[in-house]
Design a protein around this nucleic acid. Structure first.
Length: 415
RNA sequence: GCGAGUGUAGCUCAGUGGUAGAGCAGCGGUUUGUGGUUCCGCUGGCCGUGGGUUCAAUUCCCAUCAUUCGCCCCA
């Protein structure tokens, strides 16, 4: 038996990197005043289907969808934003234009071919700023995401931003683009010919060389923006400059989910290989209405934890190891071993020190070696002689010095 | 869904048509109650799984599963 394809067990020592990231998330979200939200792992398929977009790959071929015993069609969440909005509408979180700041961290599921930085069960940390249409909201979200990467020591990632404007502008642009690509259809790659039908904007993003040449001369969305979109986007760029957050305007940046409008952004890293996005996000001003809510402009982002770890490792990150304060050694006689276990029990009950003991009845030498391997500060040694006198040897393993103490004296010195 | 590579001890990897090695790790010892350095020894592998070719396969062929890297897509 083994873990199924595209899933994995996270064990020591990698788990310490995960815990480190979770620790940073906790600090960061507190700094920005965001509170955690935990939505169900599975939802009705309808939560994702129309909101993400029926023509997207995520919905079209990547969702884990199944009927439950009652016949309801359920889907393992492939992303979080739709769930968060569903929850916000259900609980009237943003009723009366109430702003809300939330974050999440957890597993998501997409049925895809695994490769570097891509699994079927993966994990995302994300944040959503609900009910805020202002440029400042965009900036807060991008600043949060940027600060997160800084705190993790991922210094060389690149922030790309773009605007997808309003749905109205986008549909005009879409038809212009369609005409343009239609006239070049024979030189387009096979994939892009399909994209022409499903989502022509996506051709702009193609990795195919021929497509890139054609896309380079394609009409630019920027030339079709209305005033509202232009002003918003320009202000976002100005603000980023003022905050000293480096970015590049990338007119080819198209995000894969249908609900985005206006600001979209992505953080990439060259440490990741082909799946080069650490995370991304954007504004979704019309999503609430799809869940029967009022118009509630919002913006958010998500990072892939697995990809962050790849980037952190590329930067040489290694998590701090937690070393024991005391390694309690009892050896040879039952009395000595018993006193050692009692001592460990006492220390753990009355203090927060980290205490390791041997549970294999090993020799003094073996336990000393083990204490060293654990990188313990002190070895507390109790042999038959010490046990008889209710004493212990306190040995400083860093300095190699040691001294005998009555057990009581040693224990009371810890408080 | 498509393409290519890989699958041998806990880990990283050698290797050969006649049932296997190294380094690291682990355990033990170096004169018997003390770790981190040497030195010595030991444990440990149905050589991914199932078929086929062969007197014989871990080594060749096929399939399958897993994994890696691409395509696609995204976190």
């Amino acid at each position: 038996m083994q873990a199924i394809r595209g899933t994995k067990d996270i064990i020591s020592p990698e788990i310490y990197t995960w815990q480190y990231i979770e620790h940073i998330i906790s600090i960061l979200t507190n700094q920005f005043g965001y509170s955690e939200i935990r939505t169900p792992i599975f939802e009705s398929i309808d939560v994702f289907k129309r909101t993400i977009g029926e023509n997207t790959d995520v919905v079209g071929k990547e969702m884990y969808t199944f009927p439950d015993k009652g016949g309801d069609i359920l889907t393992l969440r492939p992303e979080a934003t739709a769930s968060v909005v569903r929850a916000a509408v259900q609980h009237n979180i943003t009723a009366q234009q109430q702003l809300s700041r939330v974050w999440y961290n957890g597993p998501f599921f997409r049925y895809e071919r695994p490769q570097k930085g891509r699994q079927r069960q993966f994990h995302q940390f994300g944040a959503e700023l609900l009910c805020a249409a202002s440029v400042e909201a965009d900036i807060e979200i991008i600043s949060l995401a940027y600060t997160f990467l800084q705190k993790l020591g991922i210094s060389n990632s690149v922030l790309s931003i773009n605007t997808l404007a309003t749905p109205q502008v986008r549909s005009i642009y879409r038809s212009v683009l369609l005409d343009y690509f239609q006239s070049n259809i024979n030189t387009l790659s096979e994939d892009s010919q399909k994209r022409l039908v499903l989502n022509p904007l996506r051709i702009l993003d193609s990795k195919n060389l021929d497509d890139k040449l054609i896309a380079a001369n394609a009409p630019k969305l920027l030339d079709y923006l209305d005033d509202e979109s232009t002003i918003h986007f320009d202000k976002v760029c100005e603000y980023l400059t003022r905050l000293n957050i480096p970015f590049i305007q990338q007119s080819t940046l198209v995000r894969g989910l249908d609900y985005y409008s206006h600001t979209v952004f992505e953080f990439t890293s060259n440490a990741l290989g082909s799946q080069d996005a650490l995370g991304g996000g954007g504004r979704y001003n019309d999503l609430f209405e799809q869940f029967g809510g009022k118009n509630t402009p919002s913006i958010g982002f998500a990072f892939g934890i697995e990809r962050l770890i790849i980037a952190m490792n590329a930067h040489g990150f290694s998590p701090d190891t937690i070393n024991p304060d005391y390694y309690i050694i009892g050896f040879e006689s039952n009395d000595a071993r018993s006193k050692a276990i009692q001592t460990a029990h006492m220390i753990r009950n009355t203090t927060n020190y980290i205490v390791i003991t041997d549970v294999q009845n090993r020799s003094l030498k073996a336990q000393m070696k083990d204490a060293d391997k654990h990188n313990a500060q002190f070895a507390i040694i109790i042999g038959p002689e010490e046990a008889d006198k209710s004493e212990c040897i306190v040995k400083n393993l860093k300095e190699g010095t040691q001294q005998n103490f009555p057990l009581d004296t040693f224990l009371s010195s810890l408080k």
